[in-house]
Design a protein around this nucleic acid. Sequence first.
DNA 1: GTGAAAGCGCTAACAG
DNA 2: CTGTTAGCGCTTTCAC
Lengths: 403, 403
Amino acid sequence: MASNRQQAPRNPGLRDVAALVGVSRQTISRVLNDGPYVSDDTRRRVMEGVKALGYQVNAPAKALATGKTRLIALLVPDIGNPHFARIARAASEEAEHYGYDVVLWNCGESPRRELGYLRSLPSHRVDGVVVCSSRLSAGALREFVSGEVPIALINRSLGGQSAVPEVIVDAEVGAASAARLLADLGHRTIGILSFRPPSESAAVRLRGYGRSLEGQGVKIDSRQVRRVSPDMAGGYAGATSMFARVPRLTALLCANDLIALGAVQAAYAQGLRVPEDVSIVGFDDIAAASSSTPPLTTVHIPQAELGRTAVDLLIGRLRGEPSPSSPVVLPTQLVQRGSHAPCVAADTRAVSARAVQRTTRRGNTPVRLGTILRTPAGPPNPSRPIPNPCKAPAGNPEPPTRR
Amino acid sequence: MASNRQQAPRNPGLRDVAALVGVSRQTISRVLNDGPYVSDDTRRRVMEGVKALGYQVNAPAKALATGKTRLIALLVPDIGNPHFARIARAASEEAEHYGYDVVLWNCGESPRRELGYLRSLPSHRVDGVVVCSSRLSAGALREFVSGEVPIALINRSLGGQSAVPEVIVDAEVGAASAARLLADLGHRTIGILSFRPPSESAAVRLRGYGRSLEGQGVKIDSRQVRRVSPDMAGGYAGATSMFARVPRLTALLCANDLIALGAVQAAYAQGLRVPEDVSIVGFDDIAAASSSTPPLTTVHIPQAELGRTAVDLLIGRLRGEPSPSSPVVLPTQLVQRGSHAPCVAADTRAVSARAVQRTTRRGNTPVRLGTILRTPAGPPNPSRPIPNPCKAPAGNPEPPTRR
DNA sequence: GTGAAAGCGCTAACAG
DNA sequence: CTGTTAGCGCTTTCAC
């Protein structure tokens, strides 16, 4: 044991550099950590030695000594979901700028696994965690945010003066503007496709739709609201049954784009045209929303900013900066594309439906009403974002001394 | 310094448990690591103590002592890209099963950053790396795979007896089957939209298309091949210019789905119907491929299996198991959806195009030829995968003692 | 300015 | 079966 050098060219340590340069390990360390009290000459020689040996710190050793791992965990329900993938991309990008690595905690939508990860926090010794759209109850979550390791929340607010960094989106305003768009176009019989399991985000969107419609004097009875699984199949099933139960329906507000896309398919299957016979609006603005036919009118969520801001806030806390006492709220945007149109009475529609349909494709501008609000035909990804009025800061809030 | 206990209730250490239970730290450690030579009674008491104090190991300390971090890095070009997100999901899932955490190295498609990450390997002390579709040259890559830390490659093969765990996909076979599908349908003037920068995957797909077409006696001249950026905008631009230069074109093979989707939009913008006037086939089978209109005929890549298998292979190596000496090749599948149809002579088309178009929507089965090979109308996500003939193992190769 | 000593929390090697 | 002794490679006092 503890004998001399082996044959294997181990990674050089501080010791090796020290031996080469002819100073103590301490001095090397000081130079590497930009410590004070080092002569320029020594510093230069040390750097040379470091370069010559290709020295790199041993992260675990440093972590043990300092108590900081420079690791932050990112807890997401499903990294395979483009929404979270975008958030993750921005988060990891931002973390990298500050010299942090991101460990990916993918929960597969399972609260149990989420809990498991959170419980293992003390062991992992990550410096902080970004928790994305937690499925956990506020109570359970609160237990962790008051723990040893700092947590930033995305799309979840614990309310109160919790001093937890939180980034949310004004989904209610976004939902309301979508609802108003339809109401303004004359729609009076509007269906809502929300999703289950009941999450906070589902509730917020539903509320936004409901309040806005109410404000416009549009009545929604219980048959006009359905909760479906948050995917295309759910949207398809929900829309199909809604069309059957509410024959006079002229518009559909969906709690997410996948549901909306499913609803579009359902409409087609019924021989209904979108948007001529029925307007369909989504939420999220996933990539598929702009490439579907028709391109989906939807509410855009600033995914990248969510991820970036959460990391900013978290790292700010790690540096001891105070977090904002209330959630940072990012604005959503209503993106008007091709899936909405002015209302045409459902009776009229009933007659016209299943008749020979003219194409609604872009580039042909066929006979049809109300192209006014629609995005013009053109290259891919046509979209005309309309910023919501929003009291939240538009930019990147409190960036801790950015690059 | 080094005085007694502070007020702050630090995380309990081995020392605390040892004090409570009345044994040495070593014994605690042995119990926790399932070491031998512990009496059942001691083991029980230790476990109680551990539970009582809520003890959890300090990962960095353990890492320093053992030289293993139980971290594996996942290097991806872009986690925001659904393709890699899917791979990442499966990889992280698999890693978790073996008790590894995944650190996400997102390169933003930049070879420079990729190189940076790889160079920092010795410092991070991750136990292994999964490198996904590296942009690096074989030479550069080889330098790392022969380094200290084990690397598994996804979608990249260094060739030879490199003893590097590699998982690839038989993209050439997939591409060939797509090409043959079109040839069999009578298409003779077929365009190819490949992408730049020239990557191995682009080359392989191109080769698959080319060889297959050649075998079928279909000639492709240089004007029929274009390299575009690998996104919808690229597909749109490429297809638009191709339609202009090759007016008799009846089909388009695209090197990925995004390009294909852009091409579809370009076709629409020209007043061409898909698939009646022009067949368009993609590659990858991203989520948007099944929800577009028409749903895209494409070549499916087993993303989850790629990620899962790579991690299996890597962890196998970490355990000292030998890696397969040749790449594990996973089968692709041609998924026939709605964007292909039998060839109609381009002259005929030229006449019919821009005329009043009948809908091609599903559920209406309008007058049109060749629905034979198409998926029937129905609920979302219709797809009928046709497995390729493939000599590769279908299942999960060499799983190191799975769950 | 620089070096020496002590420990971060754990496991590995040996002794009993 | 269990305890003791050494480090893992780095940073942090504190002395010089």
